[in-house]
Each structure stands twice: as C-alpha cells, then as structure tokens.
Write a protein that binds this DNA or RNA. Structure first.
Lengths: 234, 234
DNA sequence: ATCCATAATATGTCTATACATAATAAACCC
DNA sequence: GGGTTTATTATGTATAGACATATTATGGAT
C-alpha cells in the first residue's frame, strides 16, 4: 500500500469537488461546506480551496455569494469559451493556403443602421471595405465592413490590398470591447455570386462590432461559405 | 490636493496594464516587465500582479510562458464567453411565456452517425426524443435528441411530456464535457412544418453533444426559428 | 409585528515568503 | 563544433495571517 498522499493542488481540489457533484454527493442546489472547513478536510490552505472554488464558479458549476456561501448550481448555465481566430488562422487550421482579395474600398455614406451603430456625426462618411477570404483558391468568407475613420487613425491611408482590414485593425486600432452576433441568413444575389453558391443558400453569418471604450470603431458582417461550422468546447 | 492613493487591487492593476497596451506604450509583441518589477512599480505584492496578469492571459490579451516572460499578444485571439442558457430561460428573457410540446418519444435504432457518436454497442437502441419549444405560443426551436440509455439511468422511465429532455438531463445525468457546433442549414420539409416556415428557409442550428467523462450521454440537434440570433460579448 | 442598527459570517482579496516547474542560457566536455 | 549537463530565471502555486466587503441573522426600540 504505497498510498501516494493526495496532491493538494488547486486543480486536484477542483477535481475532487467536481467529482462529488457528479456523483450526487453534492446534488444541484446543495450548499457545500465553507472554505475553511474544506481547507481543513483537504489539509490545505484556504486560499487553495478558494482558487479551486472560484474556478468552478467562473465556469458556472457553482454559485457563490458572500456570507450566503457556496451552492451547486441548480441549472448549470454552462459557459463555453470561444476563441475567435483571424480568418487567416482559421483557414490555416484547415490545412489550406489562405488567400485574400479586396473587392472594393471607398469612403462613402453608410446606410442608416451602420451610420447609427458607428455613432457618426451627421453627413459623415465612413470607410467601406468589401473583401473575400479564400481557402485553397475557393471562397471561404465574404467580409463587408465599415470603419469609423475618426476612431481608427491611419485607416484611410492604410494599404488593405494585401492585408485584411480585420488584421490591420487588430494591429493598429486599439479596442476594448465588442459584440458578436451569429445568425443564419439566405444568400442574396451579390453574396451568392461572390461565394459561388446559389442565391437563397443558407449561410452562417457573423456580425461583429468593436468599441474603443465607448466609441465605435468598426462594424463587420461576415458571411461564411455554405457548410461552415463554428465549434466550441464547454 | 487630496490625491487618493491608487487602489492596488488586482483589478486596478489589470486595468492599468490594459491601458498601457491600448495606448501603445506596450504595443503588440512587446515583452512587458516581469512580475517582480511590476509589483515594485505598483507597490504591491507579486501575487497581486500575478492575479492581474493571469486574468489578462486567460482572456487572450497576454501570452505568458515560464522563464520566457510575458508579452502582449500579437494577434489577440480574443476569447468570448458564451453562457448557454436553457431554452426556457432564453424564451423568458424575451419576455414571452415558454411552452413545451413533446412530439415523439421512442426507443429505436438510431441512424449510423448518431449510433457512432453515442458509442453504442452493435444493435443497441437509443432513446429518441423530438420536441418543440414555444415562445408565446409560436414555435421557437425544434429539438431532435438521442440519449444513450446506459449513460442516463432513469431516462427511459422519466416523464418528458412536461419537462424538456434537456432540463431532465441537466438535473439527473451527470456530465462533464460537451461540444457545441453552430451552423446554418436550409429547413427540410418536416422541420419547416414544425417551425411554421417555408421549406428551404435558412435556419440557425446548434449541434450539441455531452459526455460523462469519456462516455457519450446525448446528442441533440436544435433548429431555431427563422431570424434567431445568438449574441455574445467579448 | 415592523423597522432599524448591530453583530456574525463566508467569501474576496492582499501580503510576505517559500518552493516548484518549465524553459532558456551558459558552461562544459568530447 | 556539436551535443549534453548545469545554472539561471520568470512564472506557477502553496501557505499563514490579516483585513475588506457583502449579506444574512439577530436583537432592540418603537
């Protein structure tokens, strides 16, 4: 019986707590012992228990409130983490050569919804960029982007014929927050022509907007080729 | 000059580091000072700096490697966190009454791909459930689910006419991991009929599979009504 | 009984110190 | 020089102790 002493790392404690939840020793809704007691039981410092429980709370397995204590989440609103890669990397991950083609680039008056979401002053133009991302020579995604020139200094002068606008922005325009919205749309005639599919084909669409503080920097609409899937791991 | 001393909380330090990155004092690719030096500069303990930098690394802003140090991520592979609520909660968030209708429920032989992804023994049946989620009386999402009975004890006996299979599983079947996959599909005739839309309509689809350890528990295909959007915040 | 101040309590965080671990740089040998 | 061993270094983590903070429970006054 060479019983190796149980490792008292925070990961080990997290695993142990998770096991007790899974095995229904602590069913959903249960209050679990407080940190001090658990530290005593596991023979470690309270900070170590805290680290483990905090991690589980972040992933939605536990609910924690000061003074109230820690309980196993009733309906585990699981949180999935999505890494949003550059399309270049996404294509590379498929093992295909990446290509980029600038379709159009103009400083022009945006449609009302775009004007509003960029919070532009009245009668102000924005930089409109349309581009095609290619995987192994075939269309992968169509990007339709509007950039607020005031929020992205240098964008008007930047050469975007070889580098995608997204990559340029990532490197040159600071941004703090953003919103993503996924949906399914039917391909309109123009999009279908660019992506080489029939009009009406169901396409996966990503609408993305990014802010620098409170100032909108850019909004983009990305239509992926038919069959595209976005994968996440819980 | 009642200058309030700068708070030396880890959040404050995270904010300060983030500001330096945004203001290009530490541009992408830069190595930033090590924890000990930053702790000295900010006048706090190294553990506090560690907490702040770890948090930024988790959100993809920093790259950290032992001995190598900490650098500002070149291409900020931003990580977005998606909370996956129960459909019931999703509908409730829209301010509409939730409804649930079980369409069919049978122990039957699954198609080959489902059989494979549930890792069933040869010639084994699985529990097949089809159900409609309603928002304010109109169809919201169509769920097509297969459950591995061996991995979800009690599922065969459970009454799923009032409670959705997903909710039953969440409460009764332990699971540890899962995969999510989002895509856009054209509605087939059966789905269109249930959702009350025209065949061929572009629909947002979620494919979900959950495991208990390494054992597959269930796979589900959820087709949302036309116009559905999934929002995330970076 | 109701309302309000106060005490009690569990989590949240900071500090200082120590050791572990991974990865690089330097020293070394052949 | 090429390859291997040995420091060195920055992050990763554990610990004990302390105080902060948010909430709940309690007790008292009205």
């Amino acid at each position: 019986m060479t019983d190796t002493p149980p490792p008292r790392t925070w990961q080990a404690i997290r695993a142990e707590v998770l096991a007790r939840i899974r095995h229904r020793r602590w069913p959903p809704g249960t209050m679990i012992p407080n940190e001090a007691d658990l530290a005593l039981e596991f023979g470690c410092a309270r900070a170590t228990v805290n680290r483990a429980l905090r991690d589980l709370a972040e992933s939605g397995v536990l609910d924690r409130r000061r003074k109230a204590g820690t309980r196993v989440a009733e309906a585990p609103v699981r949180r999935a983490v999505l890494s949003i890669p550059l399309i270049r990397d996404e294509v590379a991950a498929l093992g295909q050569p990446y290509g980029y083609a600038l379709l159009s680039r103009a400083l022009e008056s945006p449609p009302a919804p775009v004007h509003a979401s960029l919070a532009l002053p009245p009668d102000t133009d924005a930089l409109h960029i349309r581009a095609l991302h290619l995987a192994g020579g075939t269309p992968f995604a169509l990007e339709d982007r509007w950039i607020n020139p005031a929020a992205a200094p240098g964008a008007l002068e930047a050469d975007m014929t070889t580098l995608s606008a997204n990559e340029w922005l990532v490197r040159h325009a600071p941004f703090t927050e953003g919103r993503l919205s996924f949906s399914a749309i039917a391909a309109d005639a123009a999009t279908a022509a660019q992506l080489g599919c029939a009009p009406g084909t169901a396409l996966f669409r990503l609408d993305r907007s990014t802010l620098d503080g409170t100032r909108p920097v850019t909004v983009a609409q990305i239509s992926y080729r038919p069959g595209y899937r976005l994968d996440m791991v819980i």
